[in-house]
Amino acid sequence: MKIKVKYFARFRELAGVSEEIIELPNGSRVSDLIEIIKERHPKFKNEVFAQNEDADVNVSRNGSYVSFDEELKDGDVVALFPPASGG
């Protein structure tokens, strides 16, 4: 299945692209997608997941926030956002 991945803010800089299509086997979850992203984009892996394999990453699937356990479907659009900061 094909998943469109969109990167926002700092994640866009680390991935070096604003979006891409990633192919995954049927039944894959967000966590599987994250593993492929880490393989494709070493800067993303090294800076976001360097200290913590469960790094604080906001993930939306088709406009709704989801967990890393969420199952993906062909044609989904997944967006990755860094945690919000400020005060």
Rank of each mutant, 00 (worst) to 15 (best):
G86T: 12
V5G: 01
S60N: 00
F49L: 08
S18A: 15
G86L: 10
E70I: 07
F81T: 06
S67P: 06
D32T: 01
G16M: 09
Y7Q: 04
P83A: 09
E13C: 05
V5K: 00
I22T: 14
S28Y: 09
E23T: 10
N26H: 10
A50Q: 05
D54F: 15
R29T: 11
R29W: 01
I34F: 02
K2S: 14
V17L: 08
F81R: 04
E70Y: 15
A15Y: 03
E13S: 12
A84R: 14
E13H: 10
P42E: 14
P25D: 15
E20H: 06
I37M: 12
V57M: 06
L33V: 02
F81A: 00
G75F: 09
V5T: 05
E71T: 13
F11P: 07
G16H: 11
E39R: 12
L72N: 04
K73E: 11
N58T: 13
R12W: 04
N62S: 08
F44Q: 02
D69C: 05
G63W: 05
P42T: 13
E39M: 05
K6D: 11
G27K: 13
F44K: 04
R12L: 14
R61A: 14
H41Q: 03
A55I: 05
A84L: 15
V57Q: 02
D32C: 00
E20M: 06
E71D: 00
R29F: 03
K38G: 06
V59Q: 12
I36V: 15
M1W: 05
E39K: 14
L14F: 00
G63R: 10
K4H: 08
G27S: 12
I34T: 03
D74V: 04
I37N: 11
K2P: 08
P82R: 14
D56V: 01
A84T: 15
F49G: 09
I34K: 05
D69V: 01
K73V: 03
E47P: 05
K6Y: 09
D54G: 11
D76C: 09
F68H: 06
S67H: 06
N62I: 01
K2N: 15
N62L: 08
F68N: 09
S18I: 09
A50N: 06
